[in-house]
Computed example of a mutant assay.
Amino acid sequence: MKILFYSTQRFEQPYLLKANFLHNDISFTETALSLDTTDESIGYDVISIFTSDDGSADVLKRLRQNGIKFIAIRAAGHDNVDLKKAVELGIRVANVPEYSPYAVAEHALALILSMNRKIILSDRQVHLHNFTISNLIGFDLHNKTIGIIGVGKIGSVLVKILHGFGCHLMGYDIQENEKLKHQYGLEYVTLTRLCSESNIISINTCLTPKTRYLVDSKLIALMQRGVMLINTGRGGCVNTADVIAGLESGQISYYGADVYENEKGIFFHDLSDKKMEDPLLKKLLDMPNVLITPHQAFATKEALSNIASTTFYNIDCWEKGKTNKHELRSKVI
């Protein structure tokens, strides 16, 4: 099989090369998959894409015309791929459903602690030889109520971590985990109650039609005034304009995010020599109580190794005609 990796970042290529044991004919490109770049796939059997690549119906049609039979997604999220159209066209798609829930959960905690304890501001001050602490006052996480929206693999790890801090934990998910309830005291509640009682809310859900703009002005109005909101799930789960309004009114006191609803074409790119054209992101970055990271939560050595090995597992299964447990075809209704 000939394999083309779209949107290959320099930091991931060594992990992909190390995980490849069977394939001699692989190519890497930093180019993102779009309707304008589909012709780069001519002559290949498999392409591998990332979350920022375009897997819409028109793109898939062109890929199929070019001879592409398989798409290996180097991520868990697959909302950027039209799976129904892929099935219609006979293109088989697989993802990496689990690479390191610890990486993302630990990053969520890093955002919480960094904002609470004013780490960024403190670092700036001491580098200016300002060693006062009057504007660096935070709060104990112990005994605080933390609500977790989406208690899957990542959310479950976050529950375990925050239990160690002595937090009261609430969860909102369509499926309850009995072990988390009994072992860590997680209480499953309605979304309304979670918002109204939580000091900190962490979004760890995937993006679906039901979760798109899940956090909007109506839900924000139900939250405790001064709430801390964390999003390491998907950017589209949050209506950014409504979050900004909540920050400006004081309803939200802290916002930490590793994802952004319009991050495509921005995150993973060095735009330091260009003017910020996105007004919502610019507004967020100008706010002192906002901490944005560029979709780096997954970026640990362990996670990158697992993503690479699982990606080649998916490709090897297709080549050998074996059942692929990560294939998404069976999940399409």
Rank of each mutant, 00 (worst) to 15 (best):
S100V: 12
V81T: 09
R92P: 05
K69R: 15
L109Q: 06
H107T: 01
L109W: 06
V59R: 11
R62I: 10
A72Y: 05
E106T: 06
V104F: 09
R92I: 09
G90T: 06
K69Q: 13
A76N: 13
L111H: 11
A72K: 01
L109E: 06
A94C: 15
R74K: 03
K61L: 12
N95E: 01
D82A: 04
S56G: 14
D79T: 09
R62C: 07
D58F: 00
E88R: 07
Y99F: 11
L63Q: 06
R64C: 02
H78F: 15
V81S: 05
L111K: 01
F70L: 10
R64K: 15
I68N: 02
L89Y: 08
D58P: 01
D82S: 10
A76T: 14
I112P: 07
L111A: 08
A108D: 08
Y102Q: 15
S100Y: 09
I73V: 15
H107Y: 13
D82K: 02
L63I: 03
P97K: 12
G90F: 10
G67H: 10
K85M: 14
K69I: 05
R64G: 00
R92F: 04
G55C: 05
G77S: 13
R64Q: 13
A72V: 12
L109T: 07
K61P: 02
S100G: 12
V104Y: 11
D82V: 00
R62P: 04
D79G: 14
Y99H: 06
I73Q: 02
N95G: 08
Y102C: 02
Q65Y: 11
G77R: 01
F70M: 10
A103E: 00
A94L: 07
L89N: 09
E106I: 07
L111P: 10
P101E: 08
A75S: 14
A76R: 15
N66V: 00
K61G: 00
L89D: 05
A94M: 02
G77P: 04
Y99T: 02
I68G: 00
A94T: 09
V59I: 01
A103D: 05
H78M: 11
A94Q: 07
K61T: 10
E88G: 07
A86P: 08
V104P: 02
E106G: 05
Q65V: 13
A110P: 02
F70W: 14
A110Q: 05
D82N: 15
L60F: 11
N80L: 12
I91L: 03
A103H: 03
L109H: 00
V87A: 15
R74I: 03
A57M: 07
N95V: 00
R64H: 13
A108M: 11
V104R: 01
E106A: 07
N80I: 02
G67S: 11
L111F: 07
G55L: 07
P101W: 11
G55E: 06
G67K: 04
Y102L: 13
P101H: 08
I112Y: 02
K69S: 13
E98N: 14
Y99A: 06
G90Q: 05
G90S: 03
E88C: 07
H78T: 11
P97G: 14
N80D: 01
R92Y: 11
D79A: 13
K69F: 03
V81D: 08
L109P: 06
D82W: 03
L109C: 08
I73C: 10
V96A: 05
S100K: 04
L89P: 04
